Amino acid sequence: MLRQLVSRLEKFTALDSVSDRLQEKVQAVARPERLRDVLHGTWLGHPLHPVLVQLPVGAFLSAGVLDALPGQRKAATTLICVGVASAAPAAAAGWVDWSSLSRDQRRVGLVHAAANAVALSLYVGSLAARFTGRQGWGRLLAYAGLSVAGSGAYLGGHLSFEQGAGMNVASPDKLRLPADWAEVGDIAELPENRPTVRTIDGVRVLLYRVGNDVTAMVEQCGHQGGPLGEGEVVGSGAEACVVCPWHGSTFRLTDGVAQHGPAAGDQPTLRTRVRDGVLSVATP
Protein backbone atom coordinates (compact mmCIF):
# COMPACT_ATOMS: atom_id res chain seq x y z
CA MET A 1 0.00 0.00 0.00
CA LEU A 2 2.86 2.37 0.82
CA ARG A 3 4.46 1.75 -2.56
CA GLN A 4 1.13 2.37 -4.28
CA LEU A 5 0.78 5.71 -2.51
CA VAL A 6 4.27 6.80 -3.57
CA SER A 7 3.58 5.65 -7.12
CA ARG A 8 0.46 7.81 -7.17
CA LEU A 9 2.46 10.70 -5.78
CA GLU A 10 4.86 10.48 -8.73
CA LYS A 11 1.88 10.97 -11.07
CA PHE A 12 0.06 13.61 -8.98
CA THR A 13 0.14 16.43 -11.51
CA ALA A 14 -1.81 18.78 -9.22
CA LEU A 15 1.52 19.51 -7.52
CA ASP A 16 3.08 20.80 -10.73
CA SER A 17 1.82 24.37 -10.50
CA VAL A 18 3.31 24.77 -7.02
CA SER A 19 6.44 22.88 -8.05
CA ASP A 20 7.04 25.03 -11.13
CA ARG A 21 6.70 28.29 -9.20
CA LEU A 22 9.01 27.08 -6.44
CA GLN A 23 11.54 25.89 -9.01
CA GLU A 24 11.68 29.37 -10.54
CA LYS A 25 12.17 30.98 -7.12
CA VAL A 26 14.89 28.56 -6.04
CA GLN A 27 16.77 29.02 -9.30
CA ALA A 28 16.48 32.80 -8.98
CA VAL A 29 17.87 32.79 -5.44
CA ALA A 30 20.67 30.38 -6.34
CA ARG A 31 21.51 32.12 -9.59
CA PRO A 32 25.25 32.71 -8.90
CA GLU A 33 27.04 29.78 -10.54
CA ARG A 34 29.59 29.49 -7.75
CA LEU A 35 26.85 29.19 -5.12
CA ARG A 36 25.06 26.49 -7.12
CA ASP A 37 28.27 24.51 -7.55
CA VAL A 38 28.95 24.66 -3.80
CA LEU A 39 25.44 23.48 -2.90
CA HIS A 40 25.32 20.79 -5.60
CA GLY A 41 28.63 19.39 -4.32
CA THR A 42 30.46 19.71 -7.65
CA TRP A 43 33.63 20.65 -5.75
CA LEU A 44 33.22 17.48 -3.65
CA GLY A 45 32.64 15.08 -6.53
CA HIS A 46 29.53 13.87 -4.69
CA PRO A 47 26.11 15.43 -3.95
CA LEU A 48 26.41 17.64 -0.86
CA HIS A 49 22.86 17.21 0.44
CA PRO A 50 23.26 13.57 1.62
CA VAL A 51 26.42 14.60 3.48
CA LEU A 52 24.80 17.53 5.27
CA VAL A 53 21.69 15.64 6.38
CA GLN A 54 23.81 13.33 8.53
CA LEU A 55 24.17 15.99 11.24
CA PRO A 56 20.49 16.82 11.89
CA VAL A 57 19.41 13.20 11.46
CA GLY A 58 22.10 11.96 13.83
CA ALA A 59 21.32 14.69 16.36
CA PHE A 60 17.57 14.00 16.32
CA LEU A 61 18.00 10.23 16.59
CA SER A 62 20.46 10.59 19.44
CA ALA A 63 18.13 12.99 21.23
CA GLY A 64 15.35 10.43 20.92
CA VAL A 65 17.52 7.82 22.66
CA LEU A 66 18.54 10.24 25.43
CA ASP A 67 14.94 11.33 26.00
CA ALA A 68 14.17 7.72 26.88
CA LEU A 69 16.90 7.64 29.56
CA PRO A 70 16.72 9.22 33.01
CA GLY A 71 18.83 12.28 33.74
CA GLN A 72 19.62 13.10 30.09
CA ARG A 73 17.23 16.01 29.64
CA LYS A 74 19.88 18.70 29.05
CA ALA A 75 21.89 16.54 26.67
CA ALA A 76 18.78 15.72 24.61
CA THR A 77 17.85 19.42 24.44
CA THR A 78 21.37 20.30 23.29
CA LEU A 79 21.23 17.72 20.53
CA ILE A 80 17.87 19.02 19.31
CA CYS A 81 19.37 22.53 19.16
CA VAL A 82 22.21 21.15 17.05
CA GLY A 83 19.75 19.34 14.77
CA VAL A 84 17.57 22.40 14.24
CA ALA A 85 20.57 24.65 13.52
CA SER A 86 22.15 22.21 11.06
CA ALA A 87 18.90 21.62 9.15
CA ALA A 88 19.18 24.95 7.29
CA PRO A 89 22.30 24.20 5.18
CA ALA A 90 21.05 20.67 4.49
CA ALA A 91 17.74 22.08 3.27
CA ALA A 92 19.48 24.70 1.10
CA ALA A 93 21.51 22.02 -0.70
CA GLY A 94 18.42 19.86 -1.06
CA TRP A 95 16.34 22.64 -2.62
CA VAL A 96 19.04 23.48 -5.17
CA ASP A 97 19.33 19.81 -6.18
CA TRP A 98 15.53 19.56 -6.33
CA SER A 99 15.27 22.54 -8.70
CA SER A 100 17.13 20.65 -11.48
CA LEU A 101 15.07 17.45 -11.33
CA SER A 102 12.36 16.19 -13.66
CA ARG A 103 8.72 16.86 -12.84
CA ASP A 104 7.90 13.40 -11.45
CA GLN A 105 10.98 13.57 -9.22
CA ARG A 106 10.08 17.08 -8.08
CA ARG A 107 6.61 15.90 -7.01
CA VAL A 108 8.10 13.36 -4.62
CA GLY A 109 10.82 15.80 -3.58
CA LEU A 110 8.24 18.46 -2.74
CA VAL A 111 6.41 16.17 -0.31
CA HIS A 112 9.78 15.00 1.06
CA ALA A 113 10.66 18.64 1.80
CA ALA A 114 7.22 19.33 3.27
CA ALA A 115 7.55 16.38 5.65
CA ASN A 116 10.96 17.62 6.75
CA ALA A 117 9.56 21.12 7.30
CA VAL A 118 6.78 19.72 9.51
CA ALA A 119 9.34 17.66 11.44
CA LEU A 120 11.54 20.70 11.95
CA SER A 121 8.54 22.72 13.19
CA LEU A 122 7.76 19.99 15.71
CA TYR A 123 11.36 20.08 16.95
CA VAL A 124 11.23 23.86 17.29
CA GLY A 125 8.02 23.42 19.30
CA SER A 126 9.80 20.81 21.40
CA LEU A 127 12.56 23.29 22.21
CA ALA A 128 10.00 25.97 23.13
CA ALA A 129 8.28 23.53 25.48
CA ARG A 130 11.54 22.44 27.08
CA PHE A 131 12.75 25.99 27.65
CA THR A 132 9.48 26.86 29.39
CA GLY A 133 9.60 23.87 31.72
CA ARG A 134 7.10 21.62 29.91
CA GLN A 135 9.42 18.66 29.56
CA GLY A 136 6.68 16.13 28.86
CA TRP A 137 5.38 18.12 25.91
CA GLY A 138 8.95 18.63 24.77
CA ARG A 139 9.58 14.91 24.58
CA LEU A 140 6.22 14.22 22.93
CA LEU A 141 6.79 16.83 20.21
CA ALA A 142 10.32 15.55 19.62
CA TYR A 143 9.12 11.99 19.09
CA ALA A 144 6.39 13.27 16.78
CA GLY A 145 9.06 15.16 14.83
CA LEU A 146 11.20 12.03 14.60
CA SER A 147 8.24 10.05 13.22
CA VAL A 148 7.48 12.64 10.56
CA ALA A 149 11.18 12.92 9.68
CA GLY A 150 11.22 9.15 9.17
CA SER A 151 8.43 9.47 6.63
CA GLY A 152 10.39 12.20 4.86
CA ALA A 153 13.46 9.98 4.86
CA TYR A 154 11.47 7.18 3.20
CA LEU A 155 10.49 9.55 0.40
CA GLY A 156 14.09 10.75 0.11
CA GLY A 157 15.23 7.15 -0.29
CA HIS A 158 12.59 6.53 -2.95
CA LEU A 159 13.66 9.70 -4.75
CA SER A 160 17.30 8.59 -4.85
CA PHE A 161 17.16 4.83 -5.28
CA GLU A 162 13.93 4.33 -7.24
CA GLN A 163 13.77 7.53 -9.28
CA GLY A 164 17.54 8.00 -9.62
CA ALA A 165 17.71 11.60 -8.39
CA GLY A 166 21.30 12.51 -7.56
CA MET A 167 22.68 9.31 -9.06
CA ASN A 168 25.15 9.26 -11.95
CA VAL A 169 22.82 7.86 -14.61
CA ALA A 170 25.73 7.44 -17.05
CA SER A 171 27.43 4.75 -14.95
CA PRO A 172 25.18 1.88 -16.18
CA ASP A 173 26.15 2.74 -19.77
CA LYS A 174 29.82 2.35 -18.89
CA LEU A 175 29.10 -1.16 -17.58
CA ARG A 176 27.64 -2.11 -20.96
CA LEU A 177 30.83 -1.23 -22.80
CA PRO A 178 33.51 -3.86 -23.50
CA ALA A 179 36.20 -4.54 -20.91
CA ASP A 180 38.51 -5.57 -23.77
CA TRP A 181 39.66 -3.19 -26.45
CA ALA A 182 37.04 -2.40 -29.10
CA GLU A 183 38.08 -0.69 -32.33
CA VAL A 184 36.38 2.61 -33.08
CA GLY A 185 38.09 3.54 -36.36
CA ASP A 186 40.95 5.53 -37.84
CA ILE A 187 42.02 8.41 -35.66
CA ALA A 188 42.48 10.52 -38.81
CA GLU A 189 38.69 10.40 -39.29
CA LEU A 190 38.08 12.19 -36.00
CA PRO A 191 37.89 16.00 -36.16
CA GLU A 192 40.49 17.72 -34.01
CA ASN A 193 39.44 19.94 -31.08
CA ARG A 194 35.81 19.11 -31.70
CA PRO A 195 33.80 16.33 -30.01
CA THR A 196 32.14 13.64 -32.05
CA VAL A 197 29.88 10.72 -31.16
CA ARG A 198 30.30 7.03 -31.99
CA THR A 199 28.11 4.10 -30.94
CA ILE A 200 29.85 1.10 -29.37
CA ASP A 201 27.81 -1.96 -28.36
CA GLY A 202 24.69 0.21 -28.38
CA VAL A 203 26.22 2.89 -26.15
CA ARG A 204 26.85 6.41 -27.42
CA VAL A 205 30.43 7.50 -26.68
CA LEU A 206 31.72 11.06 -26.94
CA LEU A 207 35.23 11.30 -28.43
CA TYR A 208 37.49 14.33 -28.24
CA ARG A 209 40.80 14.52 -30.08
CA VAL A 210 43.70 16.86 -29.36
CA GLY A 211 46.55 15.96 -31.68
CA ASN A 212 47.17 12.23 -31.26
CA ASP A 213 45.48 12.11 -27.86
CA VAL A 214 41.84 11.06 -27.71
CA THR A 215 39.51 11.10 -24.72
CA ALA A 216 36.38 8.96 -24.64
CA MET A 217 33.46 9.38 -22.25
CA VAL A 218 29.88 8.20 -22.00
CA GLU A 219 27.82 10.61 -24.09
CA GLN A 220 24.74 10.51 -21.84
CA CYS A 221 25.07 13.21 -19.16
CA GLY A 222 25.40 11.69 -15.70
CA HIS A 223 23.00 14.19 -14.16
CA GLN A 224 19.74 13.50 -16.00
CA GLY A 225 20.80 11.76 -19.19
CA GLY A 226 21.07 14.77 -21.52
CA PRO A 227 22.83 14.35 -24.90
CA LEU A 228 26.31 15.81 -24.43
CA GLY A 229 26.97 15.35 -28.14
CA GLU A 230 24.47 18.15 -28.78
CA GLY A 231 26.00 20.43 -26.16
CA GLU A 232 28.00 23.60 -26.66
CA VAL A 233 31.80 23.44 -26.39
CA VAL A 234 33.42 26.21 -24.35
CA GLY A 235 37.15 26.84 -24.14
CA SER A 236 39.71 25.17 -26.34
CA GLY A 237 42.46 22.58 -26.39
CA ALA A 238 43.11 20.72 -23.15
CA GLU A 239 40.74 23.03 -21.23
CA ALA A 240 37.78 22.65 -23.58
CA CYS A 241 34.52 21.67 -21.88
CA VAL A 242 31.17 20.41 -23.10
CA VAL A 243 27.98 21.90 -21.63
CA CYS A 244 24.94 19.66 -21.32
CA PRO A 245 22.06 21.20 -23.31
CA TRP A 246 19.48 20.13 -20.72
CA HIS A 247 20.62 21.57 -17.38
CA GLY A 248 24.04 23.11 -18.03
CA SER A 249 26.31 20.57 -16.34
CA THR A 250 29.81 21.23 -17.66
CA PHE A 251 32.53 18.58 -18.08
CA ARG A 252 36.16 18.94 -19.19
CA LEU A 253 36.53 16.97 -22.40
CA THR A 254 40.05 15.70 -21.71
CA ASP A 255 39.16 13.86 -18.49
CA GLY A 256 35.40 14.17 -17.82
CA VAL A 257 35.91 16.19 -14.62
CA ALA A 258 32.77 18.17 -13.68
CA GLN A 259 33.47 21.90 -13.78
CA HIS A 260 29.96 23.16 -13.03
CA GLY A 261 26.76 21.52 -11.74
CA PRO A 262 24.10 20.44 -11.31
CA ALA A 263 26.15 17.29 -11.89
CA ALA A 264 28.17 16.59 -8.76
CA GLY A 265 30.17 13.63 -10.08
CA ASP A 266 32.52 13.42 -13.04
CA GLN A 267 31.40 12.04 -16.39
CA PRO A 268 32.46 8.36 -16.77
CA THR A 269 35.45 8.04 -19.08
CA LEU A 270 36.99 5.11 -20.94
CA ARG A 271 40.53 3.98 -21.67
CA THR A 272 41.78 4.81 -25.14
CA ARG A 273 44.73 3.68 -27.24
CA VAL A 274 45.95 4.31 -30.76
CA ARG A 275 47.83 1.62 -32.68
CA ASP A 276 48.76 1.97 -36.32
CA GLY A 277 46.44 4.93 -36.56
CA VAL A 278 43.42 2.96 -35.23
CA LEU A 279 41.60 4.14 -32.11
CA SER A 280 40.28 1.58 -29.61
CA VAL A 281 38.43 2.05 -26.33
CA ALA A 282 37.80 -0.10 -23.28
CA THR A 283 36.31 0.32 -19.81
CA PRO A 284 38.72 1.32 -17.01
Score class of each variant (00 low, 15 high):
Ala119His: 03
Thr254Glu: 03
Gln23Pro: 06
Gly136Val: 13
Phe161Gly: 01
Ile80Lys: 00
Ser7Thr: 15
Ser17Asp: 09
Phe161Leu: 12
Leu9His: 07
Arg209Ser: 13
Gly256Ala: 05
Gly64Phe: 14
Glu33Asn: 08
Asn116Gln: 10
His158Ser: 08
Leu61Asp: 10
Gly237Lys: 14
Ala115Tyr: 05
Leu155Lys: 06
Gly64Trp: 13
Ser171Met: 13
Ser100Gly: 05
Arg139Ser: 11
Gly45Thr: 12
Pro178Asn: 10
Met1Ser: 15
Arg176Lys: 14
Leu15Met: 09
Arg21Leu: 13
Val243Asp: 03
Gly136Leu: 08
Glu189Pro: 02
Arg130Gln: 11
Pro47Lys: 07
Val257Arg: 06
Gly58Lys: 04
Arg8Phe: 07
Cys221Glu: 08
Ala59Ile: 14
Tyr208Cys: 01
Thr250Arg: 15
Val26Asn: 06
Ala149Tyr: 04
Gly225Val: 11
Arg3Gln: 13
Asp276Ser: 12
Lys25Ser: 13
Arg271Tyr: 00
Phe60Ser: 04
His247Tyr: 04
Ser86Pro: 02
Leu9Asp: 08
Gly229Thr: 08
Ala129Arg: 03
Glu162His: 11
Ala117Lys: 00
Ala85Asn: 01
Arg8Lys: 12
Pro172Glu: 13
Gly71Met: 10
Gly152Pro: 02
Arg252Tyr: 08
Asp97Phe: 03
Gly202Gln: 05
Trp181Asp: 08
His247Pro: 02
Ile80Met: 00
His46Gln: 12
Cys241Gln: 10
Ser102Val: 01
His247Cys: 08
Ser62Glu: 08
Arg194Gly: 04
Leu15Trp: 09
Ala119Trp: 03
Arg134Cys: 09
Ala258Met: 01
Gly185Trp: 09
Ala63Tyr: 06
Gly45Lys: 11
Glu33Thr: 13
Glu162Lys: 11
Ala216Lys: 05
Arg204Asp: 15
Thr196Arg: 06
Thr196Ile: 12
His49Ile: 09
Gly157Glu: 11
Pro227Tyr: 15
Val278Tyr: 01
Val218Phe: 01
Val281Ala: 07
Val124Pro: 00
Thr283Asn: 07
Ala170His: 04
Leu146Glu: 02
Glu230Lys: 12
Gly41Arg: 02
Phe251Gly: 09
Leu159Glu: 06
Asp67Gly: 01
Thr132Ser: 09
Leu22Met: 13
Trp43Met: 05
Ile200Gly: 09
Trp98Arg: 11
Val84His: 06
Asn212Ala: 09
Leu122Ala: 14
Pro50His: 00
Val274Thr: 15
Gln267Lys: 01
Asp20Phe: 02
Gln4Ser: 14
Met217Cys: 07
Val118Ser: 10
Pro245Tyr: 05
Ser126Ile: 10
Ile187Asn: 07
Phe251Ser: 10
Ala92Val: 06
Val6Glu: 08
Ala144Met: 09
Gly64Asp: 12
Asp201Phe: 05
Met217Ser: 12
Thr196Tyr: 05
Val108Tyr: 03
His158Val: 15
His49Lys: 08
